[in-house]
Design a protein around this nucleic acid. Structure first.
Length: 421
RNA sequence: GGAAACGUGGCCGAGCUGGCUGAAGGCGGCACCCUGCUAAGGUGUUAUACGGGGUAACCUGUAUCCAGGGUUCGAAUCCCUGCGUUUCCGCCA
């Protein structure tokens, strides 16, 4: 969430930045509540201070055997006033917190202006999409022909947008996971994490999924547990509520997990194939770092994700998302989009975001500065490295041959023991 | 899932027949001093949040002894609920 003091001191600036996302965002209400809240606290603190002093006096008097009934009665009446003020303050505290939790992060100054994806800016392209003289098949046809992904039985087992990999399909999916993890741990210096895939609401609030996006997630009945929509949630929250030493930063962590999304509101979108499933695999990259280094770390993280695409030989482009298109908690975001012949377009395969201190404030992740000894919020970052199912689909489509076979990228062979599908 | 015990600051550990305890003592950390080096020793310091005042260094109020409620003039200390840990039993990949 945003810093209330920053809001108090620069209301116009914050409002202006928020309105870059969408015109309706505003901090006006939270400012009003903040003022009432502080007023309330001043009064309550004063009364409590008074009560504390008198209570100590009563202790003394009792020790001396003096009669204290009159003075006790007097303080008791004050106590009721304090209680009322405390309740009001708690109410205002919560109201303010809820308001803040529902306000998105302010876009970074370098985030392009614009309210929808048409205003996103392409930063770079890598690789050449192949345009062979045979007709390229879509991955959903390839996998069905080769019987390596079973969509129909997935639906039978669960519901639409669930599928099952089998045989060489399951092997390929697993090989991609291993490849990603090996590159990020061995070459990019990330620590591998295997986190819980069910987390509580506090964790979901920490990274920004709650309270605003509850309907996007699967929740356990009668339990305060949600299936994670991304490993970002458990991994970022590992250090929630903690104060790290600056020496421990930056933290580089990577995790493979299945991810679960209800995809409410995407009816009719990407209904075929592996692009938009309720359950999918992803290898995530997460960083915690100091504020001074987060811009640089964001570029490096994005490069880490690009590197695996390049090692696989998949053509992609990098897009800087505009203010209206970046995620709720992000201040800056690059999408990596891989070339997908079936769409005849680039399709998102990774989203690399810098959250500044927005998530750190929610999750209360701080560090102590070596220089000043002061405590401050870390910056958090994450990006897909990469979405596994989409990588699987991209490999099949981009590397299919005229004879119907698919030549698997060299780097995966050692995980598979075979190279042609 | 059943039973019992427990949950104090970075850590260990007092306090728990309610008041002067943000919290003894120790360890660790930091700063300074001392001994030629090492080892040892001395002195001081050592939390966070939200407020108020000040350009600032800083001063100051309130809250915080797992969390949330309650009793009381006053709670780390008493009561209730929840969460967690440990041990025993049951179950289990």
């Amino acid at each position: 969430m945003l810093d209330i003091r920053l809001i108090r001191e620069n209301p116009e600036k914050i409002n202006e930045l928020l309105k870059r996302r969408a015109p309706h965002w505003t901090i006006d209400e939270v400012l009003k509540v903040d003022e009432q809240r502080r007023e309330c606290q001043i009064k309550a603190d004063e009364l409590k201070s008074n009560r504390k002093n008198i209570s100590q006096q009563i202790g003394m008097m009792k020790k001396n055997g003096e009669d204290t009934t009159a003075i006790q009665e007097q303080v008791r009446l004050q106590g009721e006033e304090i209680k009322a003020l405390d309740e009001k303050q708690a109410e205002l505290d919560e109201l303010q917190r809820n308001l803040l939790l529902n306000i998105p992060n302010t876009p970074d100054e370098t985030t392009p202006l614009g309210f929808d994806d048409s205003q996103n800016i392409e930063i770079k392209r890598w690789g050449e999409p192949a345009h062979p003289d045979f007709e390229q098949k879509a991955h959903w046809d390839i996998v069905t022909e080769k019987d390596i992904v079973d969509f129909e039985r997935g639906v039978k087992l669960s519901q639409s947008r669930f599928s099952l990999y089998r045989g060489k399909g399951a092997q390929l999916e697993r090989a991609i996971v291993n490849f990603f993890l090996d590159v990020h741990t061995n070459q990019h210096g990330y620590e591998e994490i295997m986190p819980p895939v069910l987390v509580n609401s506090n964790s979901m609030r920490g990274t920004g999924q709650l309270p605003k996006f509850a309907e996007d997630m699967y929740k356990c009945e009668n339990e305060d547990l949600y299936l994670i929509p991304t490993a970002e949630v458990p991994v970022t929250n590992i250090y929630s509520g903690e104060i790290l030493s600056e020496n421990e930063l930056p933290k580089y962590m990577t995790a493979y997990t299945p991810c679960f999304r209800r995809e409410a509101g995407s009816a009719g979108k990407d209904t075929r194939g592996l692009i938009r499933q309720h359950q999918f695999n992803k290898v995530e990259l997460v960083k915690l770092c100091t504020p001074e280094t987060s811009v640089e770390e964001h570029e490096k993280l994005t490069r880490n994700a690009e590197t695996v695409l390049e090692m696989l030989g998949l053509p992609y482009r990098r897009v800087a998302l505009c203010a209206g298109d970046i995620g709720f908690s992000a201040k800056k975001c690059y999408d990596l989009e891989v070339w997908m012949p079936s769409y005849n377009a680039y399709k998102e395969i990774s989203s690399c975001s810098n959250f500044g201190d927005y998530q750190a404030r929610r999750a209360n992740i701080r560090y102590r500065s070596n220089e000043t000894g002061k405590v401050n919020y870390v910056h958090t970052l994450n990006g897909s490295g990469l979405a596994v199912g989409r990588t699987f689909a991209a490999i099949l489509e981009n590397f299919q041959q005229a004879d119907g076979s698919v030549i698997i990228p060299e780097v995966l062979h050692k995980y598979l023991g075979w190279g042609v599908l």
